[in-house]
Design a protein around this nucleic acid. Structure first.
Lengths: 73, 73
DNA sequence: TAAAAATACTCCATAGGTATTTTAT
DNA sequence: ATAAAATACCTATGGAGTATTTTTA
């Protein structure tokens, strides 16, 4: 886990969309998707539920989100 | 400036030696030297004074060290 | 069926390694 | 003279890009 992954995950969770978060971050959507996926793989936890209209945050994701905010702010 | 640079600089300042700090970090001395040099170049500030028996910390270095500790601990 | 995310590559920057040289005590 | 840092060169990894395909509401 690293700061980039936490930051990216936080952005996606807050915007509810990989594409929107990627645009705001000024990076491409696949790059963002890979970082967040990498975090999920490492934690062996689904953090976001993907669907055809964006993403929702799982309970594990919400918990991590709170910690990430603590670290990044 | 990034966390790696701050951490490496702190280790060198605290050990008083690039070689010792590198050994403790488990990386090679040139790799460590480059990171710290990169930080100095970026800040346009000498942080360490090199000599034949290790390094001393400049005033600017001491100031940064205090901030680095605040960030990393 | 149309947004949104995932996949499949390719590329590049950078962190790090080894070997060697330079510097300073 | 010698221990420590700097330099030169090389390699590998990982982060990011574009193009395309797959999903799912």
């Amino acid at each position: 886990m690293n700061i980039r992954q936490l930051d990216y995950f936080m952005r996606v969770a807050e915007s509810g969309s990989f594409s929107k978060a990627a645009a705001r971050l000024g990076i491409a959507q696949p790059a963002l998707g890979r970082q967040v996926r990498g975090l999920e793989v490492e934690l062996r936890q689904a953090l976001l539920i993907r669907n055809g209209r964006g993403v929702a945050t799982t309970e594990a994701g919400k918990t991590l989100l709170a910690h990430a905010r603590g670290i990044l702010y």
